[in-house]
């Protein structure tokens, strides 16, 4: 890690991540993971939550860490898998599934890209005692790929394809990740956004607005934009 990383607190965690470890996480700390995680995104959520299909694994005995990810991977002829790089996909799109996902699978740690909104932390994560770890840069795909020691299984591969299938991954020193939200719902992104937002008005100062507006600049769809 570079010299700026030395200014940040570093933590190494074992999955399933214990209550004590989750409670101790501070936003802005750098995390490396050992153990087992699984990938699940829109198609897996829909199969289990909406279509009522039986999960292919027993989450309680597997892991409490859900990675919003699709790996760059290929299936070898001998049935093994070649995982090159792994990076996260933007998580905000999956908020609508998470209340039930937390309740039905016991997930407590979400790894993804971009975090969630404060509303979703307050309404979904805090009641479930869950935290959010964000991948770094979007992404350190090669570094995260190095942290995957073994692909234990790939579920629904034929039906969902490589990108949407549910991958069960065994990790060693998997990272870097950053603690984006803690169990109280504090969010690193929300804090940074608040600071950045203070300057936004001054950025536009002296620039005259365009002649033709767009929806979004007004929410009233009956209004004319000229």
């Amino acid at each position: 890690m570079g010299e700026r990383a030395d200014k940040l607190k570093q933590v190494r965690l074992q999955t399933p991540v214990s209550d004590e470890d989750i409670a101790a996480l501070e936003i802005g700390s750098v995390v490396f993971l050992d153990g087992v995680i699984y990938t699940a995104r829109e198609r897996v959520y829909e199969k289990i939550l909406n279509d009522g299909e039986t999960p292919p694994v027993d989450f309680a005995n597997l892991s409490n860490v859900n990675f919003h990810c699709a790996p760059a991977a290929a299936c070898n002829d001998d049935g093994s898998y070649n995982v090159g790089a792994v990076t996260a996909t933007a998580s905000f799109r999956f908020a609508k599934y998470l209340k039930r996902w937390f309740a039905e699978t016991g997930a407590r740690v979400i790894i993804g890209k971009g975090g969630m909104s404060q509303k979703h932390y307050d309404e979904l994560f805090v009641p479930a005692g869950a935290v959010y770890l964000t991948t770094v840069g979007y992404g350190t795909g090669a570094l995260l790929g190095r942290g995957i020691k073994h692909v234990r299984a790939v579920n629904w591969l034929d039906e969902l394809g490589i990108a949407q299938a549910m991958w069960i991954l065994e990790l060693e020193n998997f990272g870097p990740l950053l603690v984006e939200s803690d169990i109280h719902g504090n969010s690193l992104f929300e804090r940074n956004n608040a600071e950045i937002n203070e300057r936004v008005e001054s950025l536009y100062e002296g620039l005259k607005p365009p002649a033709l507006r767009r929806f979004g600049e007004t929410r009233d769809k009956t209004e004319e934009l000229i």
């Binding site: 990810c69 090159g84 792994v86 090669a142 570094l143 790929g145 190095r146």
Partner: peptide, 16 residues
């Protein structure tokens, strides 16, 4: 660090 790892391992720099 990631770009260096990608070149060393001959693996993609990003999974997307």
């Amino acid at each position: 660090e990631n770009w260096q790892a990608a070149s060393e391992d001959r693996r993609p720099m990003c999974a997307d």
